[in-house]
Amino acid sequence: MGQTHRDRPRSFQEVILRLQAYWGAQGCAVLQPYDMEVGAGTFHPATTLRSLGSKPWAAAYVQPSRRPTDGRYGENPNRLQHYYQYQVLIKPSPPDLQDLYLGSLEAIGIDMGLHDIRFVEDDWESPTLGAWGLGWEVWCDGMEVSQFTYFQQVGGHDCHPVSGELTYGLERLAMYVLGIDHVMEMPFNAPEARIPLRYGDVFRQTEEEYSRWNFDVADTEVLLRHFEEAEAECARILDVPADDPKTGRRIVMAHPAYDQCIKASHIFNLLDARGVISVTERQAYIGRVRALAKLCADAFVQTEAGGAPS
């Protein structure tokens, strides 16, 4: 017990730092968050695009994620409209990925001798990304602490080789490890720091502000227009001939186009939170974002990073 106690992280940021150190030591490139609003870590091009094509890849990163409909004005102990995911993507998936994953749980202080870890069937599908995979949600003592997925298809393309993807919901996981019941009470930095900050000190006010904006104030006319513009720009970028007259090089602009796809996806989420999308329209919007994701995937596999012969 004494050993375990000393080993336990004591703050939210320590959980993150330990995951960074662990996956870094396992050979992953420790990347930084993508600088756009996304609904989940999967949207980071380091996952969506890099899971395509034949080139090996290993990356780990924190990704701030936004789900406007989950906003609760900072009052709910577990729900947030802005939260953090920790994301690992390794291609091809190594044979010992499950063991590597379990090692990461130990690294953040979960004692395998005392806890009950289970891999429970949970197939993953992202209709907006045209992606699916098989895997599990990982349970620790009955709580879902991660998603574990072997990507089979992304942007309509079969994954060859297959990537293994791990997604940790950081707040929930850290609350569990730290023994905290309300997210806003969780120590963000060390409790003995000169200025100890809790999660609520950092995020309670923003949760409140964004909840109001997401649900009641965001200008839906403007959002609808932005959606259309992002959609048009994405297609336009990919329509531009690959041969660049200025440099004389072949430059397929998969990433700039994909940024527009991300933007459209997030705007859709905002519109959804504003309640202006009907059930039937919902499917149509998802289909439009998926069409963009597919275009971007098609473009990416024509690039060098996407495994096309240069």
Partner: peptide
Amino acid sequence: VTVANRETADDGATILAGNGRVLAA
């Protein structure tokens, strides 16, 4: 009643406490 997949040195006390917390949430 929950069914764990292992025996532990604390006779499942940690596992049970964790499950109880998840249920309470």
